[in-house]
Structure formats: structure tokens, C-alpha cells
Amino acid sequence: MTTTTAGGGVRARRPRALPLRYVVRKTVTAFGTLVFVVIVNFFLFRVLPGDPAKAFSPRGRNADPNRLAEIRRDLGLGLPWHEQFWAYVKNLASFDLGVSWGQHAPVSRLIGERLWPTVLLSGTALLLAAGIGMWLGARAGWRHGSRLDRVSSSGAVTLYSTPEWLLGLVLLIVLSDLGVIPAAGMQNPLSELPPALDIAWHMVAPVTVLAVVYIAEYSLIMRSSMLDERYADYLTTARAKGLRDDLVMRRHALPNALLPSITLFFLTLGFVVSGAIGVETVFNWPGLGRLTYDALRGPDVPLLQGLFLTFSAGVILMNLVADLLYPLLDPRVRAS
């Protein structure tokens, strides 16, 4: 049973503290998920045919067999699996993710170098999309059945049905010949623009493509939670008092509709990761997504393992943030 005030419960906005037990519980759950991912990662790749010793022999086909045997002993490949597992976990604790077969460098270093471009690209697209998408969804949901609602929902469903990289591909085909957008990459060493502007220039097309699809998704989410609010009982009071329609929405319905959307924003980050892989590939953006595509050549198993771990850890972290934020933002929910 929710307690409501005439103002929809938004007025009680004293900063709330989270009970420690709740924080601990959620953190432990998140950690548990991470452990599960680590275990899956380990066992999955034991099944794979392929030789980790290859990372250390430059010309895989011509390595001296004695040396390969030595390397395998050093890597502990002959050991029973539980000992291998402990070695793997210990390495993880010190951020040692192995050595890439294709690039002959520590995986953690490669991932570290490429993390920033992905965060920049996906983060920018996400924030833009969340802002625009939620505004659009709120308006459409509030004006349920109106022309705006129908057009934007229809458009959103179409965009939502399109893979992001496909949009990027079509955009490139149409525009690249005209020279309107840069051919690829993040920076042009020859450019006369200051570096920040050069990067921004290279970001326009991929961010647009990502944002457009995310806008569709977030506007649909926001719309449906706004629909939930629209017909809620407490708003009848506000309307009965003769308040203007959009004030009703802005002051009362929107904040409550916003809350589940914000947390859903964090929870759908898994899609962000998937979108990044396709879009970075098509636009040659030097981030983790493109690194994944390159790692498929081979396949470069240690690199793929490390990337899988990184992506999963990122999403788990965001989910934890969402779990911790939700009770803070929504007074109707008690952190129990």
C-alpha cells in the first residue's frame, strides 16, 4: 500500500539514507554474479581447442617443440583443473588477463588503451538518447492517442527493429562518397582542427546512429511508464483542482514516471555494449567493440575472454548502481 500526499509523494524529498544492510546485500549479490561470470569464463575456454603457449611463440607454426612444452609447464597447463582455476583467479585479482595471441601484448593493457574511446562514444550517445528519448516518451505517453504519440511510437518501433550497425552502414554508403563525414576512425593526424574538435567531428556519425536507436528504446520505455502514471488515482485530485494539463504532467506524473525509467536506463546497458560492437566495427572507431571484432580473427581467445569479463563487469557495476539509486530516488519504495 503506497502512501500518497496530494503532491504525489514527491514533496517528501529529504535526502534518504540507505540502510547498510541493503547496500551490503546488493553489493554481495553483484559480486556473486561476477563470480559466476568468472567461473563461466574459465570453464568455457577449457573446452576450446587452441594452445595458450602460442602467445609466447612468435611464429606459432615453427616453435621448437621443447620450448613449447616448457612454456606449457610454466603456464601450468598440465596441472589439475582446480589448481589452474586458482591460478586464474589469482591472476585476475592482480588484473592479469593473459597475453593476446594476435597482438602479443598483455590483454589488460590492450583493454585499458581502448576503454576510453568506447566510453566516450557510448556514453555520449546514451546521455543524449536518454535525455531526448525520455522527453519524447513522456510527451507521447501523456498525450496518449494523439498524433504525436502515434507517429513517435510507430517510428520508435521501426527504429527499435533495426540493428544499429545497419543504420551506420547505410549512412556510410550514402554519405561517405559526398565527403560529408570522415571515412573512419577517431582522429586524423593530419587534421588542422584542434584534437578535441577533430574527435568530435569523427564522433558525429557513430553517435547519431547509436543515439537514434537508443532514443527509440528509451522513448518506448518512458511512454509505457508514463501510461502507468497517467491513469493513476492520485492525479484525479490534481486534475479536479483544475490544474493545467502539462503542469499536472510536469509536477506530478513525470517525476514518478521518470524513476523507473532512470533505473531501467541502467538496466538496459547490456544493449549498449552490444550496440557498441557493431557500430564501432562499421565506423572503425578504435574502442573495445572494434577490438572484439578484431579478436574474432584467430580467434584470439585470451583477448575475447578478457573483453567478455570487462563487458560483464561493467554491466554488473551499472546494475549495482541502479539498485542503490532506486530507493534513493523513489520514495514509494523502501529499501528492505
Binding site: 571515412a183 573512419a184 593530419l190
Partner: peptide, 20 residues
């Protein structure tokens, strides 16, 4: 001398055309 890496042919050819 700058060596620039492109992962695919299309952007590479485009870069040659634009003088990048």
C-alpha cells in the same frame, strides 16, 4: 612519416580520395 591503420578497405580508399 605517419602510418595510419584502417581496418577495412572502404574507409582506406575514401581516405586516399580525400587526401587523409
Amino acid at each position: 612519416l605517419i602510418i595510419r591503420v584502417y581496418a577495412d578497405d572502404a574507409p582506406l580508399a575514401q581516405a586516399l580520395r580525400t587526401g587523409e
